[in-house]
């Protein structure tokens, strides 16, 4: 039993079959992070709605704690989060939950679109939720701020990962960052590659071992949130999300690096 629960806390994704049986057992809180109108049309049975925009409107710890309380989540609740945006929005919500100190949260292994295309159960019913009380034990070790980033330049063993698309990276990025576009992390069916596959990919890129790893993306830490879970899925121990990401970095007029002397944008068919 002990080893089982150990496994549970390390789990980053929940597979479809497990979620379905957890729903049947009524032992899970499912969060749908799509927009309210999409959620109202239909959703995974028993799921509650937390549109990402709602969370982002004020993601201070006190406020998100209240949000999660209102969704009936306390310290013991098992939570699975899903979206229809390749897992990126779900990741951002899951990470926030982790940040306030929740340990039992994972991502549905696939998107809602895929769930529906498989002909699996969906529902229009909005469940009644009893508010619960979650404690607040912030986990600063999974958060990176711009100040933190600036100081980590001096550290040797830090890998900074940019999860935006390649062209955006070439155009401008935080000095020293390496490019790992979010699309790289998924397969056709799953929001994350199988573990061995992911491991090989990351090891080829020198992302392994005990390095401190910081991910960032364009603005609010969604794409890089997915990367956060990708890195965790292969057991990397020390991963942080720069949650305010490149948008903040630019606004603060911090130094920026670019690929010089090439008109790469003109190769794009967009």
């Amino acid at each position: 039993m002990c080893s089982l629960s150990q496994e549970k806390t390390l789990k980053n994704t929940t597979d479809i079959d497990s979620l379905r049986s957890q729903i049947r057992d009524n032992s899970i809180r499912v969060i749908d992070v799509r927009r309210e109108e999409d959620y109202k049309q239909n959703h995974i049975p028993t799921a509650v709605n937390l549109p990402l925009a709602n969370l982002l409107s004020d993601d201070s710890p006190d406020r998100v704690l209240k949000l999660f309380n209102s969704l009936g989540i306390d310290d013991e609740t098992s939570v699975v989060v899903y979206d229809d945006t390749f897992g990126a929005l779900a990741s951002r919500v899951a990470w926030t939950l982790e940040y306030i100190g929740h340990s039992d949260v994972s991502l549905l292994e696939t998107t809602y679109g895929k769930w529906k295309s498989l002909g699996l159960e969906n529902d229009t019913e909005i469940p009644e939720v009893q508010t619960k009380q979650h404690s607040l034990h912030l986990k600063p070790e999974i958060l990176a701020t711009s100040d933190y980033l600036e100081h980590s330049k001096e550290k040797k063993d830090v890998i900074l990962i940019d999860n935006r698309e390649r062209l955006n990276y070439l155009e401008q990025h935080i000095p020293g960052a390496i490019s790992l576009p979010y699309r790289t992390l998924a397969t056709n069916d799953k929001i994350l590659r199988p573990r061995e596959d992911m491991k090989r990919l990351l090891e080829n890129r020198g992302i392994s071992g005990d390095s401190e790893i910081i991910t960032y993306c364009g603005s609010v830490g969604t794409l890089s949130g997915l990367a956060y879970y990708a890195l965790k899925s292969v057991g990397l121990p020390n991963v942080k999300l720069y949650v305010r990401s490149f948008k903040e970095w630019k606004n603060l007029q911090k130094p920026i690096e670019k690929q010089e002397d090439a008109s790469y944008w003109d190769l794009s068919a967009e």
Binding site: E165, R166, L167, L170, S179, P181, R183, T184, L201, N204, R205, G206, Y264, L267, S268, A269, E270
Partner: peptide, 25 residues
């Protein structure tokens, strides 16, 4: 999308090229 710039390029010699790929990828 995963390893290049989200576009591919058809050459004049019936090749399809993916540009700006990180050597390690």
């Amino acid at each position: 999308e995963q390893f290049s710039i989200g576009s591919a390029h058809f050459s004049t010699r019936e090749n399809i090229q993916l540009h700006w790929v990180i050597l390690e990828d």
